[in-house]
Amino acid sequence: MKEPIIDDVAADLEPTFPKLSSQGVNVFYGDKKVIDNVSLSIKEKTVTAFIGPSGCGKSTFLRLFNRMNDYIDIFRKEGDILIDGQDIYHASVKVEELRKKVGMVFQKPNPFPKSIFENVAYGLKIQGIKDKKILAESVEKSLRASALWDEVKDDLNKSALALSGGQQQRICIARALAVKPSIILMDEPASALDPIASAKIEELIHQLKKDYTIVIVTHNMQQAGRVSDNTAFFYIGELIEYTETKTLFTSPEHELTENYITGRFG
């Protein structure tokens, strides 16, 4: 395999003050190395797609940024993961505080078996906010930001489980937005949705980019092309190529990238 070309990336991929960055990161599950010396920087208020075949480490790498891997007993990390220049694995960092800053949306919509309102207000209530006016305002704001308000404003007390898959996913996004994160991690957020619901999520990602830094793991090449500014291609734990999305999908530098995105393997 050729050397990764991460030294050769476009200027905006090396922001002076990156929102997110990793420096020489290795991840092990037991003895197995699943992320191999990955360094990359992500600029604020951009959308970055992580792509690569199943098992390439892209989801593991994504989860480093909100310390979701900490729950795995055999997980071990080397190197630094920084958000706004701060090492988020430092002993002084409280994971709960970190996750307020870094929201996450999963592949399968996972609303709680509660009302729409309670779902979106959940994080705020955990934080101890009880003021009904503040809660109501925050729920409306989050539902508007997730492009769901007009569809559910008259049914806020209805169970979130009664909504369609696409709506449930947007409830999950609203729930993440309610605690005012600055980063949203999305792990295949539209893979369980039909094309119309998927298109709504993609449009939402475009709108959210104004205020949030978004990192999305996707298996859908066209989706990566449509929603992201930059794309990182992972293969067997290595970052093979990280560049502007339009460059990656028209003239990738690396043969492995070309073979993957053109469907020659994976």
Partner: peptide, 9 residues
């Protein structure tokens, strides 16, 4: 086929 990269070129 939504071609990309060398195929698109």
């Amino acid at each position: 086929y939504n071609p990309v990269a060398g195929d698109l070129r």
